[in-house]
Simulated assay, not measured.
Amino acid sequence: MATVNEIISGIESKMEKSVAALRVDLASLRAGRATPSLLEKVMVDYYGSPTPVTQVASVTVPEPRMIVIQPWEKNILKDIEKAIMKSDLGLNPNSDGICIRLNLPQLTEERRKDLVKVVHKKAEEYRVVVRNLRRDANDAIKKTEKAKEITEDEAKKGTEKVQKLTDKVMKEIDAAAANKEKEVMEV
């Protein structure tokens, strides 16, 4: 069986990965400002395997509301266009045969409110993940206590450490969600 510190360090790394994953998810949400991270989840069929657009083309942001995608191979231009059309970004690609331009329209108030709801939903999904990790850590601590590998005091201190860690990670999740909400609501 693992010691309390091993259990906590394992859970801590999983919780930090959850926060990092949330930040990546939130970055891919369109907030009215053009950013290459919007295209991270858009997959192109590249020689039979799904590949992110950012790995088959250079993605630049020449203006605050425009993304320019220049594929490294001209023959995948149409595939990139199709992938963008299929994505949930709601953008229409404009191609000139060499590159694709994506113009991001101004977000309506209704769309902004919908995006804020999506931000809250994603944040709650990650809170659930963190709570499940906390439960798993506490269960592991209880098992080691029942196996007489640690004392009751060590188990109590361990669960307190897990709770402090959980609280810290929850604050990070809340901060990331609040930052994205602020970004979405800026006009």
Rank of each mutant, 00 (worst) to 15 (best):
Lys14Phe: 03
Pro71Asp: 06
Lys17Arg: 14
Gly48Cys: 03
Asp96Glu: 12
Asp25Pro: 01
Ile67Met: 03
Ser95Tyr: 01
Glu110Leu: 00
Leu102Val: 01
Glu6Leu: 05
Asn103His: 12
Lys180Met: 05
Lys41Gly: 13
Gly10Ser: 13
Asp25Ser: 10
Ser87Thr: 12
Ala21Asn: 13
Ser18His: 07
Asn5Pro: 03
Asp136Val: 05
Val118Tyr: 01
Lys82Trp: 02
Arg131Lys: 10
Trp72Leu: 02
Ile11Ser: 08
Ile7Gly: 06
Glu183Ala: 02
Ala20Thr: 12
Gly97Asp: 03
Val44Thr: 04
Ile11Asn: 09
Ala31Thr: 15
Gly10Phe: 03
Asn179Ala: 13
Leu38Gln: 02
Val169Phe: 11
Ile84Leu: 02
Met66Ile: 15
Lys82Asn: 15
Arg134Cys: 09
Thr51Met: 11
Gln55Gly: 04
Tyr126Thr: 11
Ile84His: 02
His120Phe: 10
Ser37Val: 13
Glu183Asp: 10
Arg112Cys: 06
Thr54Pro: 12
Leu107Gln: 09
Tyr47Asn: 11
Ser87Leu: 09
Pro105His: 03
Glu6Arg: 09
Tyr46Glu: 03
Pro105Gln: 05
Ala137Leu: 00
Tyr126Ile: 07
Leu29Phe: 01
Ala147Met: 05
Val61Met: 06
Ala20Trp: 14
Arg33Asn: 11
Leu77Gly: 09
Lys14Trp: 06
Asp174Ala: 08
Ile141Gln: 11
Lys148Thr: 12
Ile11Trp: 06
Met43Trp: 10
Glu145Phe: 12
Lys171Leu: 15
Leu38Trp: 03
Lys168Cys: 02
Ile8Ser: 01
Arg112Ile: 05
Asp45Leu: 01
Arg135Ile: 10
Val4Met: 09
Gln55Arg: 13
Cys99Gly: 11
Ser28Arg: 15
Glu73Trp: 00
Leu104Gln: 10
Leu115Arg: 02
Leu38Ser: 07
Arg131Ala: 04
Gly158Pro: 05
Met1Tyr: 09
Gln70Lys: 15
Pro93Tyr: 04
Val128Glu: 13
